[in-house]
Nucleic acid binder design. Sequence first.
DNA 1: CCGTATCCGAACCGATACTG
DNA 2: CAGTATCGGTTCGGATACGG
Lengths: 127, 127
Amino acid sequence: MTQTVPAPLPADFFPADCPVQSVPVLGSRKWAWRIVRCLEGGPRRFSELRVPLAGITAKVLAESLRSMEQDGAVVRTEYAENPPRVEYALTPLGRTLLGPMDAVCEWSRENLGSLLAARLEYERAER
Amino acid sequence: MTQTVPAPLPADFFPADCPVQSVPVLGSRKWAWRIVRCLEGGPRRFSELRVPLAGITAKVLAESLRSMEQDGAVVRTEYAENPPRVEYALTPLGRTLLGPMDAVCEWSRENLGSLLAARLEYERAER
DNA sequence: CCGTATCCGAACCGATACTG
DNA sequence: CAGTATCGGTTCGGATACGG
C-alpha cells in the first residue's frame, strides 16, 4: 500500500516538442473540419465549397484553404482556362485526418446530449 | 458510367444542429486537451496543475477549468480547510474524451513529421 | 492557497469593395 | 470565377496587481 496517492505531475510532463496541444492542421480554424469533410468525396471548386459552408466569406475560405495547403493537407490545382477554374483536393496526408475526425464525430453523436444537459444544469444551479 | 462526376454538395450538407465543427468541450481552448491529460491519473489541485502546464497563468487556468466544468467534463471540489484546498477531477463524461484524444495523439505521432516537412517545402517553394 | 480584476495585444472572423 | 485589400468587431490569451 505505498501507492494510494498518485504521483505528482512533473514540470516536463509535456515534452517541448509535443504539439498535440491542438491538431496543427485543423488548428483553431473554425472551418477546417468542415472543409475536410467537403473534400472527402473528391476535388471541389472554390465556389462549390461555398455552398455547404453556408455563410463563409471568400476571404476566410481562401485563408483556410491556404493554411491547409501549407500544412500539406490540401492541394490546389489551377487550370489555365477562361473563366478560371481552381480545384482543391485532399492529399494522402489530408486523408489521414479522417480517422481522428471520425472518432471525434462519434464522440459528439454519443455524448453531445449529456454535454448540453450539463450546461443547462450548471446554468440552473447558478441562480 | 453515370457516376464519373461526384454529386455537388447540397447547401444543407451540414445540419444546423451539427456542432461537430469544433469539439464543444475542448472548444478552441488552447489548454483544454492538456488539462484533460493532467487529470487522467486522478484528482489534482489547482497549483498542482500549474506545474506541468508550464507558463499558464492563474487566470487562464481558472477560466479553462470553469468552462470544462460548465460542460460537465470536470468537477470542482472545495474543502473547507485553511489554507484552502480545491481539487479538480474528470467526470465520467470527461473520461469519454480520452478515446478521441488518443486517436488525435496517435495521428500526431504518425503524421506530424510529414506535416512539418510540408510546411518547410511550401516555404521553400515560395521563393 | 486559490483565485478575481483590469488592461493589453494578438489572432481570428466577417462585411464590403474591388480586380485579373 | 476566384480571389485580394481594407477595415472593424470579437474573442482569447498573457501580464500584473490585488482579495478571501
